[in-house]
Write a protein that binds this DNA or RNA. Sequence first.
DNA 1: TCGAAAGTCTTGACGTCGTCCAACTTTGGA
DNA 2: TCCAAAGTTGGACGACGTCAAGACTTTCGA
Lengths: 139, 139
Amino acid sequence: MKQVVELLRTHAIQPSAQRVAVANYVLVTKEHPTAEQVFHAVTATFPTLSRATVYNTLHLFVKKGLLKQFALTEGVLVFDPHVEPHHHFVDDETGAIVDIPWDRIRVEGADDLPGIDVRDFQVVVRGKRQRRRTTNKAT
Amino acid sequence: MKQVVELLRTHAIQPSAQRVAVANYVLVTKEHPTAEQVFHAVTATFPTLSRATVYNTLHLFVKKGLLKQFALTEGVLVFDPHVEPHHHFVDDETGAIVDIPWDRIRVEGADDLPGIDVRDFQVVVRGKRQRRRTTNKAT
DNA sequence: TCGAAAGTCTTGACGTCGTCCAACTTTGGA
DNA sequence: TCCAAAGTTGGACGACGTCAAGACTTTCGA
Ligand SMILES: [Mn+2]
Ligand SMILES: [Mn+2]
Ligand SMILES: [Zn+2]
Ligand SMILES: [Zn+2]
């Protein structure tokens, strides 16, 4: 997409074909993919793309502020194009990570801790998605 | 230690020599060690202990409620003998994880999210430890 | 237009973390 | 005492991630 190329340019990133392909996936997703998920998703349409380039590109995007990086689930980093502050829910059963809007949870005292320069904080909620809501009227 | 043996027994865990050795390290530490750190620390005094047994034992302790397990830093799980709810600070520079008492931070709304059965939540704070406090009287 | 320098990409080797399994040792109750 | 169950071991294996050397591309001044 044209706008991805512009976005990379405005962040001082050369829009190579590989970077544009990665960007068109990872900057658009609502999920929180791992590097391996990005690799598999993008090589589906760009088969010659190498693993090293995926990692290099993701790290570059993080450095340039287009992505954030989290360690929330076992063993892997995930990438998040939603760079404004927000909280996360982690589904125990599937490992899925879901955004919680910043204003949905009130936090007091996290940025005023003795001896600490707080860079950021977030609430991490773990649990299960509820079974089908049966709140609907007669089905 | 004798009390570790008793602790294991009260949690229905056979206190084998290997488990006691692991317990004497991981149930006592104030740090949040990774499995590999546990492995290296305990093999220093119990050289025949195998990696598989360390992992088996840590997972058993988690299942029995003696430890909690978190993914807070890149690539590794950490284990925490402090099983009551509390928050965590992660030092950007060293990766060190430090407990924040539950009451130090007020959180409202995290357990009342639509469509979610919340099992638990915590605040994760990231930043730097401040340079030496110079609040002391004339040194 | 040409060629060098800088930038980018690929391949494949390597390291760490964690799992798994088959073979073994130890344990404790009949 | 004996033996089935429980526990342990070492090594193979897989996923994730890093790194460096070389190849390819783009840029840009002569
Ligand atoms: Mn930006
Ligand atoms: Mn307990
Ligand atoms: Zn997010
Ligand atoms: Zn803790």
